[in-house]
Simulated scan of single mutants.
Amino acid sequence: MRKPRNRRRRSRAVLAGLTAAAVLGVTGCDAVGGDAPSPSGSGERRASPTPTPDWDTTPRSIAAVGDSITRGFDACTVLSDCPEVSWATGSSPEVDSLAVRLLGRSRAASHSWNYAVTGARMADLPGQMARAAARRPELVTVMAGANDACRASADAMTPVADFRADFADALRTLRRSAPKAQVYVASVPNLMRLWSQGRTSPLGRQVWKLGICPSMLGDAEALDAAARLRRSTVHQRVEAYNRVLREVCAKDRYCRFDGGAVFEYRFGVAQLSQWDWFHPSVDGQARLAEIAYRTVTARETPS
């Protein structure tokens, strides 16, 4: 009988901490999605792989930009970044980050840098990219866009035209200082998949009520027409963002999009944070590292 009491105490502690954070305005809104096939947007596939000119599958230094996913937010402790488990540059052997897989553990410690910021949107990427470019990295990883969809309402989401302009500006910023740096771009996760996974958890629903991605996760149990339309609108915006990432990246000689792999990956409960049922867990970070490594080391651009 002691284990149930312990779980109740732990649940109350988690909710208390998250409530305090909500009062202070700490949100960290971004997410991980799944690999259920999508009929449009990032789920679309080209007929055949396309060679990437001059792509080097063995870069010797890595810089990461993006949001809380790349910072390992809520993966280790509640309401905290945990960059050591970052899929891109982390040192944890439980994750085997992209940097560790490409550079080796010792070199990764001195030749990888994480400039991602929890809560960042695409508009923040040019500034991050300028800091990354100063390192003259051979590879830059990009994972951003979930916070552009995770707003107070569907109407508050970043317009697609602005998202496109900000991403293009970020790449131009990089090119001014690092004209031949390679860029790996991860697709925006499937937020609809995340909602479908977490909505069955009573504690998860309580945590979401504190303000985590309200455009998708608000009123998580509601299945009326208005709620379905709101979630569908957010889902379609995520698909539009992924089309932008694909199209803008395709115009850059040294850019490689993941082909929608992160969007399509079927993240389950084990891959989500035990603190918020939203950000990747340590296991989820490892899955992101696998996707990135497979994309970066492939001989051809993913279809």
Rank of each mutant, 00 (worst) to 15 (best):
R7W: 11
A21M: 04
V183I: 05
R5N: 07
L245E: 10
S97M: 02
L125N: 12
D162T: 15
A154Y: 12
G25A: 15
D276M: 04
Q271C: 01
A240V: 02
Y293V: 06
R253G: 04
P59Y: 14
D54S: 07
E247I: 08
P39Y: 06
R5S: 09
V65N: 04
A20I: 11
L223C: 00
D96E: 15
W277N: 06
A132F: 10
E239D: 14
A31H: 05
P49A: 07
I69V: 15
G259P: 03
G28F: 02
A31E: 05
W55E: 05
S40F: 08
K251N: 08
R101P: 09
S110K: 02
L191P: 04
M143I: 08
L245K: 07
I291R: 11
S215Y: 10
A250F: 04
S273I: 15
V234T: 10
Y241A: 04
Q197D: 11
D258H: 06
S92D: 15
D96H: 13
F278H: 03
S91V: 02
L103P: 06
A152E: 14
M143G: 05
L171P: 07
G268L: 02
D148M: 08
A240H: 01
S273T: 15
P93S: 14
P53T: 08
A165Y: 00
A178I: 02
T19H: 12
Y293T: 03
D96F: 05
R46K: 14
L18R: 14
S68M: 13
N6S: 09
Q128W: 03
M192E: 14
T52N: 09
R205C: 12
A181L: 09
S187D: 04
L223Y: 01
N190W: 04
R9K: 13
G268V: 02
F163G: 10
V78E: 05
R231A: 00
T89S: 06
G25E: 14
R176M: 07
A130L: 13
R45A: 11
D35R: 04
S11I: 05
I212M: 12
L203K: 14
D81V: 07
A99Q: 10
L223V: 06
S273C: 14
L15I: 11
E247G: 11
Y115R: 13
S97F: 00
C249A: 11
L18E: 09
V188M: 11
K180P: 04
S201C: 09
A161Q: 05
V95P: 07
V140N: 02
D74P: 03
R231M: 01
A250M: 03
P214E: 12
R135Q: 13
E221R: 08
V185E: 01
Y293R: 00
P83E: 06
N242M: 07
S42D: 03
G28Y: 00
P51I: 06
V160L: 12
S68R: 08
R164G: 06
W208V: 01
S38A: 13
P39L: 12
A292S: 06
C29M: 10
E138I: 01
D35I: 00
T158V: 15
A261E: 04
